[in-house]
Design a protein around this nucleic acid. Sequence first.
DNA 1: CAAAACCATGGAGTTAAGTCAACGGTTTTG
DNA 2: CAAAACCGTTGACTTAACTCCATGGTTTTG
Lengths: 121, 121
Amino acid sequence: MRIGELARRSGLSRDTLRFYERQGLIRSGPGPDNTNSYRDYPEDALITLEQVADAQAAGISIAELVMLLGQLEAADPDSFDGEAFLQDRIDEVEARIVRAERFLDSLKQAKAALAAPPVLR
Amino acid sequence: MRIGELARRSGLSRDTLRFYERQGLIRSGPGPDNTNSYRDYPEDALITLEQVADAQAAGISIAELVMLLGQLEAADPDSFDGEAFLQDRIDEVEARIVRAERFLDSLKQAKAALAAPPVLR
DNA sequence: CAAAACCATGGAGTTAAGTCAACGGTTTTG
DNA sequence: CAAAACCGTTGACTTAACTCCATGGTTTTG
C-alpha cells in the first residue's frame, strides 16, 4: 500500500512514516509493477507500527527499538550478548510498569475522593 | 534540606531540581533561621519526587502533572470538571500499561527463544 | 489529456525535558 | 579567617521525536 493509506490506517502522519522508515523501523519496497517512484508498504507494516507504539508506551526509544529489532531478526546468539541486553530492557520495562501502576492507583484514589459526597471531605 | 542533599538522595541533578521547582512540581521555603539565601526543601519533597517519577513512567508530562497537582490539592470540585480530566488521565495511563505489558511479553518471548537450545531454532 | 490528488526530498523548525557553563555570592571547616 | 564546598541566576545548548514547508515529480480521474 502507499504511504497515504498506511497513514490513514495507522493514524500516523505521512511525515512520521517516512521518519520511521529513515530510522529503520519500517521498510518499503518498489511498487507492484516495479516502478520505483512511490514507496510501497507491505500489509504487515501495520503490525510493526503497532509494535512500535507498544514499545514507545513501554518507554523504549526508537534507537533502542532498532537495536532490538536487529537482535530479534538476526537471531544470531553468538554475535554479542543480546541476551543480557534483552534482560536489561525487560527489567526496565517492568520497573516502568510498576511505577505506572502506582501512579494509576493515585489517580483512582483521587477520583474517588472527588466523587465522594462532600460531607466526607 | 538543601538542594545538594536532595539531589544526592533523590538521584536527580541540582539542575533538574531547580527546573522542577520552576515548573511548580516542588516547593522550597526560606532556610531554617530565615536567612533566605539558600533553598530549603522539606523532607517530603523526596516523596513528591517519587510521585513525579511515577507519573513520568506513566507517560504524564510535567505540564499535565502540574495541572493534576493543582486539581488534587484544590479539591474544589465545583471549579471546573476535574473529574472528567482525571478520568481521561486514568484511561490514558491504563491504555499505556496495556501496551507496555504487551511489549514486555514480546521481550520475554524473544529472550526465551534466544535461550532455547539451538536445535530448536 | 488536464486537473486533482498523491507522493518525494531536503532542510528548517518545534516541543519537552533536561543539561551545561559562566560568574559571583554564601556556608562550612580546619 | 581563608580555603573548600555549596549554592543562585541567567541564558545558551542538547536530544528525541516529530512536524512543516517549499519545490517539483507521479498517478488517477472525469
